[in-house]
């Protein structure tokens, strides 16, 4: 109940604001441009619908993570810097409930981005393969990744107590997680590339999207990667819980 109250407060203060809507409008504009470019290009290239759907899914996931990192970094350190954390800690809600409410609000951003992306996914994937299964995987894995990165950056902001620094560290970790994208296909097939792909939750998610949407592989192929992502989600929640329990007035 207290968690729900904090979540509603956070949504009022960060999601349903001009800043929040600016994110969503920008997300929508970027997805519009990308979809249009992909589709007009597909008329003239061998890029198939599945490949385009996969690329849009990667982009939506990265965007969701990015907004989760920013919201997470602001969640605790922002309250400290604004001098409002004391009032929050004096409320009847426990530290865990406060963290859960803030995390739920951060996840709301991901949910809105996912909902915004659905019409684009349908337009881009129309007539292609594995559209519905791709959307289901995006919903599940995108939510897990949003939990991982939001909880981690929230925990970090509770420990570092500086929004700027926690944002920088979280961004660096996000870039590190996204680094397999910058590696060449040849490098990714080496043992180093494979290990990096396997231990990296973001790479696990995009490899799962590739496997489901482009290669039409079933759930049994995805279990290992999904288990790793679930493990990271559990660890990041544990990190958040331990980090907020150290908070003092």
């Amino acid at each position: 109940m207290k968690t729900a109250y904090i979540m509603r407060k956070e949504i009022r203060e960060s999601v349903l604001t001009s800043k929040g809507f600016l994110w969503y409008i920008l997300t929508s504009v970027i997805l519009s441009v990308l979809s249009y470019l992909f589709l007009t290009n597909s008329e003239l290239s061998l890029l198939d619908q599945g490949q385009m759907l996969y690329m849009i899914m990667n982009f939506v996931t990265a965007l969701g993570i990015l907004i989760g990192v920013v919201s997470g970094s602001d969640a605790i350190a922002g309250e400290i810097e604004r001098g409002t954390l004391e009032a929050l800690l004096l409320s009847p809600a426990s530290k865990t409930e406060i963290a859960a409410g803030k995390l739920a609000a951060a996840l709301m951003n991901w949910c809105i981005i996912f909902v915004i992306s659905i019409p684009y996914l349908f337009v881009v994937g129309k007539g292609g393969q594995n559209l519905l299964s791709g959307i289901v995987y995006l919903a599940v894995l995108g939510t897990l990744l949003a939990v991982i990165f939001s909880a981690f950056s929230m925990g970090l902001s509770a420990r570092i107590k500086s929004m700027k620094n926690s944002l920088i560290v979280s961004f660096l970790i996000f870039l590190l997680a996204g680094s397999p994208i910058f590696l060449s296909a040849a490098l990714r097939t080496t043992w180093f590339g494979r290990v990096l792909d396997l231990v990296n939750p973001f790479a696990d998610a995009i490899n799962t999207f590739d496997s489901v949407v482009v290669d039409s592989q079933g759930f049994s192929y995805q279990t290992g990667r999904i288990a790793i992502i679930c493990g990271y989600a559990f660890l990041s929640l544990l990190f958040l819980k331990r980090s907020v329990s150290r908070l003092e007035m």
Partner: peptide, 27 residues
């Protein structure tokens, strides 16, 4: 010149406009 493959234009133009309108309404 295919200007509207997969009927993308209504979504590409409509969705940012709808989100903007919702924002304006709430504001």
């Amino acid at each position: 010149l295919r200007l509207n493959p997969n009927n993308v234009l209504p979504t590409a133009i409509g969705e940012p406009v709808i989100i903007g309108a919702v924002f304006l309404f709430i504001y």
